[in-house]
Design a protein around this nucleic acid. Structure first.
Lengths: 341, 341
DNA sequence: TTACGTACTTGACACGTTTTAATGATGGGG
DNA sequence: CCCCATCATTAAAACGTGTCAAGTACGTAA
């Protein structure tokens, strides 16, 4: 035991103690912390020395209370276990960390209840702004609570719900369309669309794109297979249902589902891509590692997170001058073994 | 536009406004919020009605300032892109959410600098406690800052650094040993250990276990291949280095590395498991989906997170009565194709 | 010498909540 | 009928920081 730690709970050292140690007033210490240019170099040095010596740590609660704003932002995603969201979160966290902000992470588990609870908590914590992938588009606007309180919000992977709002999105209709067009070109006619709840905008849009592709091609048909969530386990369930009457191709609303689907098909001796084509969505890193390398639709997830974070801070730093933007990325088709005949 | 939102920034509604509306004093409103049992049912009802009517949201900053503690905890991991950590984070977030706590997410990117910065920020935010997977075991204790301020810390996937501290760990020495024992039993003698920096405890321990296995068996040898991080890209790099002189088997410090290794080997026409056995660590979900299903060492990641979170809150809620625990889980060998000859 | 401007520092108050000691109301026992 | 115990509520004092009007010191110009 050679730690220097004197133990917990010795009378807290605040701005006042620092002031006394440095022989200045508390106001000056505050100035050193927040507007160093307003204080004479000599004094500043003395104060900084005292801060170091006493191990002063600024009390964020007091700071936010008095200043009215803090250095916290909220991030709400559907499910951290999904690489799409963890990559997004990484982008957000990286940028926020660079800018000196802390990120409160919430997961809605695609439950509107939990979404509401989390947003309320974020409001209580006095976050500066919020990045959110909302659960569903319809229903009462869960973000109203934040809007009323003047808390900025950027929609992540979802269109803006209000005119004066930023959003960062990938064109899911285009993505769905390019996936299915690809399948049709490969000769598929009977195509299954495996997805999570259609109340999720992502699922609904990709489906719309899929149908659009069929319509434009003038041949082929889509049948829906809807499952409860977007995990490999649900993909397995979907594949089980499809085994009774195999389609020519399967378009999955994300790669996790696709991996579950492929695993089940292969185990049942159904050959991919010879008998059934399979394509996923998101192009997660593991898509290239699977037994039959998975074709997919790539989204710039990490960048999505970073850019959304930038927009949010831009809005927070200059609410008046800020121009709200709806940024729309285009996805990219990645063809691999699972759709190559 | 049928939203009810009256727009941002109408004079904030606080406990006082609620008090006036309900015809009581601010103190009573506070009691309704924090100790409802102390206020008469009729009054409570009236206050709650006012809260609803005015859309009151409690100011967390003021609350933490006055009460001295808030409802925030910190979580620091190495890298969110690693499914091991995202699963862990999910466990933590789930439990904290159930208990009404918010989680500030930080990633150290295995940089001690960033680790320090993040811990300092967490201290500023006045977190109740911290869950941390530290970057390295040596060096000055980054947690001292928190300890001095009486902030509880639970080590995640790392042994306690102080006697009076909780930790939740998986026995990595045992894991490394069972992996290599398995390889030896399968007939391998020349075994490569592919890992990230050996300053990471996880990497060092798994290596120790591997060497122990060789020692106990009385035959075989381990050679180290160390790369910069634990991603598939680094796995690829490691495999490239090994191509010059192929070992009988490769033990990777995590599944991400293993996937990179396998991908490269297969592309170069090296057959797994016929020519080289490969085993990973973590047993991430995608391990079963790979071309050659990956053998691995499973860790109870989600539970790890939940239990660590429980320990932390237990310590926060009752610092005196709390018994510090060092919980050690045993990993589990999962044999699949990649080591089956 | 006085007046004035600049550069820096100070002191006190306010932010919204929790908490404590004190006050008021109600009813039961003597 | 009075006193006291019990319960419900109140008023006021903190918590640690940011801000702003007011102050001091110092040098320069008249």
């Amino acid at each position: 035991m050679a730690t220097t730690a004197p133990g917990p709970r010795e009378g807290t050292v605040g701005i006042k103690q620092v002031a006394k140690a440095a022989g200045v007033s508390p106001g000056t210490v505050s100035n050193v912390l927040n507007r160093p240019e307003r204080v004479a170099p000599a004094t500043r040095e003395r104060v900084e020395e005292a801060i170091r010596a006493l191990g002063f740590v600024r009390n964020g609660s007091a700071s936010s209370l008095r200043a009215g704003v803090g250095r916290l932002v909220g991030l709400m995603v559907h499910d951290l276990a999904n690489p799409f969201f963890s990559s997004l979160a990484r982008g957000v966290e990286d940028l926020m960390s660079e800018r000196g902000y802390a990120v409160i992470l919430c997961s809605s588990a695609t439950s509107t209840d939990r979404e509401h609870r989390n947003l309320r908590m974020l409001a209580e914590q006095g976050v500066r702004g919020v990045l959110v992938t909302p659960v569903d588009s319809g229903g009462p606007d869960a973000l109203a609570l934040l809007y009323e309180r003047g808390i900025a919000a950027v929609m992540l992977d979802h269109a803006a719900t209000r005119p004066q709002q930023c959003s960062v999105t990938v064109d899911d209709v285009a993505g769905g369309q390019m996936a299915v067009t690809h399948l049709l070109e490969a000769g598929a006619r009977d195509i299954a669309y495996v997805s999570g709840p259609l109340t999720l905008r992502q699922c609904a849009d990709r489906r719309a794109g899929a149908r659009k592709a069929v319509e434009l091609a003038g041949h082929g048909a889509i049948r829906d297979v809807t499952v409860g969530d977007m995990t490999p386990a649900s993909g397995q369930e979907a594949a089980d249902r499809l085994l009774a009457e195999l389609p020519d191709a399967i378009f999955c609303a994300n790669d996790l589902l696709a991996m579950g689907v492929m695993r089940t098909l292969l185990r049942q001796g159904v050959r991919v891509p010879e008998r059934v084509l399979v394509i996923g969505y998101d192009d997660i890193e593991y898509a290239t590692a699977s037994a039959v390398q998975l074709s997919s639709v790539r989204q710039p997830t990490y960048r999505l997170g970073r850019i959304a974070a930038e927009l949010l801070l831009d809005e927070c730093d200059d609410p008046e001058g800020h121009a709200h933007q709806q940024i729309l990325f285009q996805p990219e088709l990645v063809v691999r073994e699972s759709t190559r005949q």
